[in-house]
Design a protein around this nucleic acid. Structure first.
Lengths: 181, 181
DNA sequence: GCACAATTTGAACGATCACTCAAGAATTAA
DNA sequence: TTAATTCTTGAGTGATCGTTCAAATTGTGC
C-alpha cells in the first residue's frame, strides 16, 4: 500500500513489488490476480485505514463540531517530506487512473463513503445544536471534503509547518463560523 | 500538452506522442531532448495558459474581489467528462511526479507564481477597500488556492452540475464574508 | 541546377514492462 | 513414512518502454 501510495500506480513496477513484498512474480500472481487487482486491494486497505482514523478523531472529540475541526487541524501534521506521501492516496489515484473505468469507480466509491461519514458527522453536530438547523448537511459535508482535498495538496507544497497549521486553522475557523447555529 | 494533461506523465508513451505530434521518434528527440524535457515544456505552456486565463477573469471583473469570486465560480463549468481533464495539470503532476526532483521543482515554481498572482489580486481588493486592512494578503491567497485545489478535485468527482455550482458559490460566499472589510 | 546544411525518417537498441508456467519445496493428512 | 496438496520459485514470454543514428528527404544559397 505504501509503495503504491508513494510512487503511484504506473510508476510502481513489478520489480518494486517483488522487493517490497518479498515474493516472486509467481507468488504475487497466485495471491492477487494482477497488478491492477493488487492495486485495488491496496485502495480498499487505504480507504479503510483512513476512514477509521478519521472516525477515531471524530469519536474522541468533546463535541461533533469540535471533532470536525480537529480533523481539519490534524492535517497540519502532514509534512511534504513525510513518507508515505502526505497526499490522499484516493485523490492521487483519482487523478492518475481516472480514465481506467474499473479503478475510477473503486476510488469514487471510497470517496463517496467518506463523504457519507462526513455527512453523518455534520448531522450529529446539527443534532447537538452546534449547527444551524436550516443547513443542508450533505452540502456542508461536500464543502468540508473540498477543504480536506485542498489541504492535503497544500501539505505537499507547504514547507513551513507554521503556515500549514495556520491554513488548517483558518479553514477550521471558517467552518465553525459559517455554519454556526 | 493535452495528452500529458489527460493521461499523465507515466501513462503517456512515446507511441502516443508520435501519433499526437505526427512526428517520428528522431524528430521528437531532435526538437526536445527527452520525454521529460518535453513534459516540462508542456508544464510551462499549461501554467502560462492557466495564469493568463485567470488574469483575464480578474481583469474583466467590476472589482478585485468580484474577480476572485468569479474565478471560483468559473470552476463550476468544469465537468468530469470534459476533455482535457478538469483537474489542474500542475496538481496532477505534483502528485504523480512529486518524487522526481527536477519535475517537482518545476511544478512548485509554477504553483508559487500562481499563488503570487493571487496575492496581488487580494492586495488589490484590500487597496480597493473590499477587504479588512488588517488581513494578511498572502495568507488569504493561500486559503484561496486551497479552495481552488479542492474544487478542481471535486470537479473530477461531482457529476451533478447543479451541486458543483452550489459548491463553488458556497466557497465564493465564504471568501467574501470571512474577509469583508 | 547544384552543392551544402538542416530536418525527417524508421529500423533497431538494450532495458524493462506485466505476466506465465513447469518444476521444485513445503505443508498437510493419513 | 508416505501420498496428496498447496505454495514458491525464477527463468522465460512477447510486448513495449525511452532512445539512438545512419540514411533518405527536404530546404537553402549561389
Amino acid at each position: 500500500m505504501v509503495l503504491f501510495w508513494t510512487k503511484g500506480y504506473h510508476a510502481t513496477s513489478l520489480k518494486d513489488l517483488e522487493v517490497t513484498l518479498q515474493m516472486k512474480p509467481g507468488s504475487i500472481y497466485a495471491a492477487f490476480q494482477s497488478k491492477e487487482s493488487l492495486f485495488r486491494a491496496t485502495l480498499d486497505r487505504y480507504a479503510a485505514k483512513m476512514a477509521s482514523e478519521m472516525q477515531a478523531v471524530l469519536d474522541t472529540a468533546q463535541s461533533p463540531l469540535t471533532g470536525l475541526r480537529n480533523h481539519l487541524i490534524s492535517l497540519a501534521n502532514l509534512a511534504p517530506t513525510d513518507k508515505p506521501s502526505t497526499s490522499c492516496m484516493l485523490v492521487k489515484s483519482l487523478l492518475e487512473v481516472g480514465h481506467v473505468d474499473a479503478l475510477r469507480d473503486a476510488v469514487q466509491n471510497h470517496l463517496n463513503r467518506i463523504q457519507i461519514s462526513l455527512t453523518h458527522a455534520v448531522q450529529m453536530a446539527q443534532n447537538a445544536g452546534e449547527l444551524s438547523q436550516s443547513l443542508d448537511c450533505d452540502r456542508v459535508a461536500r464543502r468540508l471534503q473540498t477543504y480536506i482535498f485542498g489541504l492535503k495538496i497544500q501539505a505537499q507544497r507547504e514547507t513551513d509547518p507554521r503556515r500549514m497549521r495556520q491554513l488548517c486553522e483558518d479553514l477550521a475557523t471558517e467552518l465553525s463560523q459559517s455554519v454556526a447555529a
